[in-house]
Design a protein around this nucleic acid. Sequence first.
RNA 1: UGGGGUGUCGCCAAGUGGUAAGGCACAAGGUUUUGAUCCUUGCAUACGUUGGUUCGAAUCCAGCCACCCCAGCCA
Length: 579
Amino acid sequence: MTESNSAGSSLRTVSTPSNYIRTMIARDQSNGKYGGRVHTRFPPEPNGYLHIGHAKSICLNFTLAAENGGFCNLRFDDTNPTKESQEYVDAIKDNIRWLGFNWHGEVRYSSAYFNELYSFAIQLVEKELAYVCSLNAEQAREYRGTLTEPGRDSPDRNRPKNESLNLLARMKAGEFADGTYTLRACIDMASPNINMRDPVLYRIRHFAHHQTGNKWCIYPTYDYTHCISDALEGITHSLCTLEFEDHRPLYNWILGQLDLEKLQLASDLAGSSSQYVLPEQTEFAKLKLNYTMMGKRNLKAMVDSGTVDGWDDPRMPTLAGLRRRGVTPAAIRHFCESIGVSRSESVVDLGMLEHAIREDLDRNAPRAMCVLNPLPVLVTNMEEGQVQHLSMANHPKNENMGRRQVPFDRKLVIDRADFAEEPPPGFKRLVPGGEVRLRGAYVIRCDKVEKDASGNITRLLCSADFGTLGQRPQGRKVKGVIHWVSSGHGISSTVRLYDRLFTVENPESSEIEDFRKVLNPHSLQVIENALVEPSVMKEQRRICFQFEREGYFCLDQLDSTTERPVFNRTITLRDSWSG
RNA sequence: UGGGGUGUCGCCAAGUGGUAAGGCACAAGGUUUUGAUCCUUGCAUACGUUGGUUCGAAUCCAGCCACCCCAGCCA
């Protein structure tokens, strides 16, 4: 499928890559399997912050629905109150909106279905498909068997249903302590699939829930809840990651035992004339990125140990961190589209993400100049107090982004890296006696190098060729172009340079006993005396800029003040110079 | 030695019996007042492996190998 190629008006060809889930949905659509409906859901547990891996799932679920004129719900899978909180609920909603997606209708919660879930549980007991079990956790493990040996039936497996019904009611009423009883499905203790060995449906937890408070002291498990929640919401395609593959038989078993009519009646599709079709689970490989730690527990450990400044530290792979880093939602969406979807576990190269970020920022970030490591330059043939306001394009290819005035005067700064007394081979920047173009301004020649007593270069005395504004210098070629800022007009800024957090491709490898040992000591470098051109603060332009020849930067939304801007480097420019 | 999965270029990834898409990375040119962008070109006789079926196989069949997931009252 290719869109946008009418008469070459759009140079960019956007194609939606084929993947097995898209293909499956297209097939379902043409077969009329769900009566033309495509309804997905993104179902996070609110037990942490979302990261780039979740973005893959979010993009998948929302775009698949949108492509087919369907809907995507946001449902918090909140069946374990001991790990969850409202803080996470709020952050997740915020992140999804930031990414640019709108969920269908109200936010859903599995906990909103506790009543229905409970009555379906009673149904199962009445059909003798579930029983109340008094084995404790340790005993249950013994009875479960192992990967290679079958399990043994619980002594309570044949408990009369009335007794189970009674016990279940008392569990719900709070008569029993945590761990004393569970409700279990009655399936097959000898199943080669361990998930089918009488899985727990309900457990007792005297713990307040962030949504339901103290109303419940028994909570349904994931396996029991997820399939029914999907069915209640009229979900058609239930997408999840590969580790749930073995749970699919259980997903189908549970839904298969329930009364279809009652299910539909309790669902969003109640009253619908179309045939009620059960949702189906499809798995895909979760995103892995090299040099990146994705595990929630590990990310939390980095936050708690102070290794990073918080969940939104710009080095974190969390959506909050990427956002603060200056990564745009569009870049993340394009990245997620570009990596594809498959069932093979794969490790995506960080370079792919970086490419998506640069691609978006190159097109959309206005240019500006910022000198990170200032070296004073005196333009000797410029008069003291004289200021020229040079007009510069905000974008080299998009004049719609306008122009700005950049003050040029006798006292400037350039970056120390752009001057060398003894230049390496291929050096195109400023050298003693040499010439270089000041971007958007004049060609200057370095006439003299001033040093302090210990030999450090303190200032360059240069002369400008005033005939070179917008003109090529006559009779010679000047290859180098460097950026500059007026030292009198520039704004002193803090700039934070970020690099990858880890020195190894797989920081979560089992061979690494502690991730602290593979941290990149240079993942954050803070520069306190950078000088940025004044237009950046004057105009309420955007928060993302390309500082020419340095990279893409964004104004830190938390730490910046009008007196003292703080910039975060989102990413460097590509640098193909091997010097 | 149980069950469920996966193996196509350095990294993602299309491909579903008719003779290996695309992107990233990389390399070489060109344009360029960002060593950026952009443009052009190159980059798997080869699809884990061994056999088989077929006029024809990455695609079908069988065996083998490698890797991943599962023994929470987590999700």
